[in-house]
């Protein structure tokens, strides 16, 4: 027996109440594409699951002035199909398209991707670059955290799904962004390297804000702050982009992986992919 009870709820309040009643022995489940496997493998133990999938109020993608809001239960397929994201948050749109397979994108959610906290999670890399914040509720209140604060280690999040629910992600609509990914094959595989960039470039072609996220080159989705510093408050030029990509290559710390390439190879690929992503972000709006 992997779990003793499975509850489908229709509201956030109902979910929080159940989580409280189980006092730590239950856990929320969204698409289950990570959690069901972890439970089958006995990597996690729970008494009960509280399924959020029927909560319609957690499934939306909308622009609200200069911000974009995404309900945490939105599926990768919903993100991939959104014209709003393709136009205003291309990095996230491309990242969602790259996840797994059509079947996985149909049920896997952005909230699950973030809370599962893999350093190469595709939408985590995109949302980190886009400067997203997450809204988290529990029976004792609500908190808003920058995404960085949610990642504690490989597979370890500061969100506690035994009592907390991520409800939405919020990020600015003004970035030019892009996403690049290299994997052994296109479908089904976590990436060898994925990178996302978000740039705010003013009329004088000066970069007002650069954000660069790279995975999997650390125990958490990684912000390349030194590379960002090379672009910040500078006039954007091909030379600057190449310098920034070279800096990122130095500040990351990838591991040797028999499956997904040596550290040296991954370093080299970060430079290539980051140059491509930066060029893409500069060109398109």
């Amino acid at each position: 027996m992997h779990w003793e009870a499975y509850h489908c709820v229709e509201s956030i309040e109902e979910a929080l109440q159940l989580l409280d009643e189980y006092a730590g022995a239950s856990r929320v489940i969204a698409g289950g594409t990570d959690l069901v496997i972890q439970l089958k493998n006995h990597q996690r133990r729970v008494k009960a699951l509280v399924s959020l999938s029927s909560i319609k109020a957690l499934r939306y993608i909308e622009q609200d002035g200069e911000t974009i809001r995404i309900g945490a239960l939105s599926t990768h397929n919903e993100l991939a199909k959104s014209d709003l994201l393709m136009e205003k948050a291309k990095a996230l749109s491309l990242a969602a398209r790259a996840v797994g397979s059509p079947q996985i994108r149909n049920i896997g959610t952005v909230g699950g991707n973030i809370v599962n906290a893999q350093p190469a999670a595709d939408t985590a890399i995109a949302l980190l670059a886009l400067g997203a914040k997450a809204k988290i509720v529990s029976s004792t209140g609500e908190r808003v955290e920058v995404l960085e604060n949610l990642f504690k280690g490989i597979g370890e999040s500061s969100v506690n799904p035994a009592k907390e629910i991520v409800t939405e992600f919020i990020f600015p609509a003004f970035f030019r962004s892009a996403f690049q990914r290299l994997a052994l094959r296109k479908a089904f595989t976590l990436p060898i390297i994925n990178v996302a960039v978000a740039l705010l470039i003013d009329q004088k072609n000066i970069c007002r804000e650069a954000r660069i996220a790279i995975g999997p080159v650390s125990t958490v989705p990684f912000r390349a702050k030194k590379a960002e510093a090379i672009l910040n408050n500078e006039i954007i030029s091909e030379k600057k982009l190449v310098l920034a990509a070279a800096e990122a290559m130095r500040e990351i710390n990838p591991r040797d992986s028999l499956l997904r390439g040596s550290a040296m190879y991954r370093r080299a690929m970060v430079k290539v992919l980051l140059e491509r992503a930066l060029r893409d972000a500069v060109v398109v709006k």
Partner: peptide, 11 residues
């Protein structure tokens, strides 16, 4: 299309 091996029946 979904992977029925990942979907709890009660879902």
């Amino acid at each position: 299309a979904v992977n029925s091996c990942l979907v709890p029946a009660l879902q």
